[in-house]
């Protein structure tokens, strides 16, 4: 299953946060959403997750606008937000049970699924530990496990590796790629860390509320005549930044 976004615009009062954003996520792959801070990534996520109402444009899931089937999208989506949304005082299992209950899963089903998901992440012996006792990388893994608990077909991660060390970042990145392969999961991975993106990954570059590139990392490099995605990203975002500074 995939998501199609058509001509999506959004403004906070007078400030335009997104302007005519259109793209298709490639199903079963890690789709990278690259953009500097303030590019509009979090606003896009808030619209995709229906926390904000669409002002203009359309979001379609399996070809149907979400306005006609808002609950279907929520069932199909797993989300890891930029800021942790775990309850620090509660245990790993209690956090998962809460999420499961909100998706209509009984505590028994949650326990069964949690065991399996956490085993894959090497955290199955931490079910009873409080979130507060876990390090940043492990907390993120719990959030990913939680997002997968109701077996969504699309996973949205908003800067999921911010604040983690390199080893933890790489490990989570690899884990999500494994999930794409093993579960045919479609992933939208928002980041401003270019090293997290592989050459064949579909990439969206969002800058100042607009999509400036929508192709694989390799194709973007070729189109801009530069050797690395970092160079292409700098080229796309730099002129605007110079203007902003002057």
């Amino acid at each position: 299953m995939s998501i199609e976004v058509r001509d999506l615009s959004f403004r906070y009062g007078p400030r335009q946060a997104l302007e005519s954003v259109s793209f298709n996520l490639v199903a079963g792959q890690l789709n990278a959403l690259l953009g500097p801070n303030g590019a509009g990534k979090s606003t896009l996520y808030a619209l995709l997750t229906q926390l904000y109402a669409v002002q203009s444009g359309e979001i379609l899931i399996a070809g149907e606008p979400i306005s006609r089937q808002p609950r279907a999208l929520k069932r199909a989506l797993g989300v890891v937000f930029q800021q942790s949304t775990l309850d620090l005082d509660l245990s790993v299992l209690q956090n998962l049970e809460y999420h499961g209950a909100l998706h209509g899963l009984s505590a028994r089903d949650v326990r069964h699924r949690a065991q399996e998901l956490l085993e894959r992440m090497g955290l199955d012996d931490r079910l009873s530990d409080s979130i507060r006792s876990l390090n940043g990388g492990h907390r993120r893994r719990v959030e990913i496990a939680r997002a997968l608990l109701h077996q969504p077909s699309i996973l949205l991660l908003d800067e999921a590796t911010v604040g983690l060390d390199t080893a933890a970042r790489q490990s989570i990145n690899q884990h999500v790629r494994d999930l794409c392969r093993s579960r045919d999961l479609t992933v939208l991975w928002a980041t401003h860390l270019i090293e997290e993106i592989a050459p064949h990954d579909p990439v969206l570059i969002l800058h100042q509320g607009r999509i400036h590139a929508d192709a694989s990392a390799e194709e973007i490099c070729t189109a801009h005549g530069v050797p690395t995605l970092a160079d292409a990203f700098a080229q796309i975002t730099a002129p605007q930044e110079v203007k902003a500074c002057s």
Binding site: T49, L51, K74, R75, Q83, T85, L102, G104
Partner: peptide
């Protein structure tokens, strides 16, 4: 509370 942190989890429910 926490800039919508815990509310986001609640509001992501399909109910």
């Amino acid at each position: 509370d926490r800039e919508m942190g815990s509310m986001k989890v609640l509001l992501m429910s399909p109910l």
